[in-house]
Write a protein that binds this DNA or RNA. Structure first.
Lengths: 229, 229
DNA sequence: ACCTGAACACCGTTCAAGT
DNA sequence: ACCTGAACACCGTTCAAGT
C-alpha cells in the first residue's frame, strides 16, 4: 500500500528473500503441502516461472524455509543470557532448547521439513555451535560433546518425532473399533492406557509429543550427560 | 514363471497384499519417491486404476508399507528369548531395539515414511506392546513406562533422525567451501570437528546416525530409565 | 537483467465403460 | 466382481520468447 515513497510502475521487485518469506507464510497458513511453486508465485503476484530467477528449484525453497525458521530460533535464543560454566551448563542448555521449541510451536509444519533436508542450513549450524559452546563451558570434552549432539538428535533444536500415540486423540467415551478388536493382543498397552490418562489435550506440535513428555525425555538425556561430564 | 500348477488365462490375481509387497520392493530398489501408483501398477502388470480396487488411495499404500516393515521387525524380535525380570529388562529392551534397527537397515527409506504416518499401524502397536511388556517385567510402573515410551520416541523402534551431520560425508582433503566461509562464526563446531573424526564411513541409515552414536544415545536413555525404575 | 506463456513429463484420482 | 481407458486437476521444470 505505501511503497515507501517509490510509486508504482513495476509492482513488486521479487527477490530470494521475498520468495522465502512468502513460503513460510503459506506454510504457516496451510501446511507445507500448500507451498507449491505456482501458489508461491500467486502469493507474490508473479508467474511460477519467475521464481526460478531467484531460487534454483523447489528443493532450494525448502532449504531456505528451514534456514529462515532456524534464524528465528537463533534470534530468540540470542536474547537468553544464562551462565553456562560448570554445572550451570545444564540449565543453560535446557533453556536454549525449550526456547527453540517455543519458536517451533509457531511453525508446526517445520519439524517434518527439517527432517527431510539433507544439506544442513547455515542457521542450524549456528544454533548447534551455540549449544556446543554451552557444553564446552560446562566442561565437556569435544568427544563427549560430539556424542551428546548425536544423542540429543532433533531434541537439541526442540522437537522429537513420535510414532507412539496409541489413542490419537482425547480419550472420549467412544472406543476406537480397530483398537478394540486388537485389544486382546495388546495387553500391556491396554493396561497402561487404562491407568495413565493419555489425553494430549492439544498435541501442540502436530505428530510430535506434548510439552511434558518432551521435557521428561530432555531431562533424562541432560541428566545422563551431566553424569558423564 | 512357474505359476504353481495353475496355468495362464488371467496373468495375476492382484490383491492388497501383492500391492503392498510390490510397494516395498519398489522402495527398496529406488527409494520411496519411486513408489507411484502408476509404477506400482506397471510392476504388477496392471493399470494404475486397478489398484484402487484393493487400496483406497496412496496414503493407504504407505500405511500398509509401514505395517509390512513393522511386521518384519516383529518377526525378527519374536526370535529373541531373553529374560526380562528385574534388572535384566535393560538388556532385553536393548537387544529388541537393536534387532529392530537391524531390520530397518534393509529398508533405509522406511524411517522417513514411519515419521510421516499419522495413524499408527497395528504391527507397530504390537511392537510397542512387546517393549512395554519388557519394561513391566523389569518393574516399571505404568506411569514410568509411559514416559519411557515417549522419551525413547522413534529410538524405541530402532532409528533416530539426525539433523546434525556437519560434514555430510567422509572428511576428505577437499574442504567444503561454504563451510570454510562460515568457519569463523562456528568456533565450537570447527574446534570439535578438528578433534573428533566425524567420518560416518557409510552412514548406514541414510540421514540417520550411525550405529555407534545410536547405541550411545540408546544407552544414555536406558541407563537413565533404569535408575528411575 | 528480469519476467513470462506455452509446453512437457509427470502426479493422484474420478468416471463411465468394459468383461 | 474385478479391471481398464480416457480425462481432470494438479505438480515441477524447460525453453523460447518477450521487455
Amino acid at each position: 500500500m505505501v511503497g515507501r515513497g517509490r510509486s508504482v510502475e513495476t509492482r513488486a521487485p521479487l527477490s530470494r528473500d521475498r520468495v522465502l518469506r512468502a513460503a513460510v507464510k503459506l506454510a504457516d497458513e496451510g501446511g507445507i503441502a500448500s507451498v507449491t511453486m505456482r501458489r508461491l508465485a500467486e502469493e507474490l503476484d508473479a508467474e511460477a516461472m519467475s521464481l526460478y530467477h531467484h531460487v534454483a528449484n523447489k528443493d532450494q525453497v525448502l532449504d531456505g524455509v528451514v534456514d529462515a525458521v532456524a534464524a528465528e530460533i537463533n534470534e530468540a535464543v540470542s536474547r537468553l543470557t544464562l551462565p553456562a560454566e560448570g554445572p550451570a551448563w545444564k540449565e543453560a542448555a535446557r533453556r536454549r532448547i525449550l526456547t527453540a521449541r517455543q519458536v517451533l510451536l509457531g511453525h508446526p509444519w517445520a519439524p517434518a521439513v527439517f527432517s527431510t533436508r539433507t544439506t544442513t542450513s547455515p542457521e542450524v549450524l549456528l544454533y548447534f555451535d551455540g549449544l556446543l559452546g554451552i557444553m564446552r563451558a560446562g566442561g565437556f570434552s569435544n568427544d563427549l560433546a560430539h556424542h551428546a549432539m548425536h544423542a540429543l538428535g532433533s531434541r537439541a533444536i526442540g522437537f522429537s518425532q513420535e510414532l507412539f500415540s496409541p489413542t490419537g486423540g482425547p480419550t472420549t467415551g467412544e472406543p476406537d473399533p480397530a483398537m478394540a478388536a486388537m485389544a486382546a493382543q495388546l495387553p500391556n498397552l491396554v493396561g497402561m492406557l487404562a491407568e495413565v490418562a493419555h489425553d494430549d489435550p492439544d498435541s501442540t506440535l502436530g505428530w510430535c509429543d506434548d510439552q511434558a513428555e518432551f521435557e521428561f525425555g530432555l531431562d533424562l538425556l541432560l541428566d545422563g550427560l551431566d553424569r558423564r561430564r
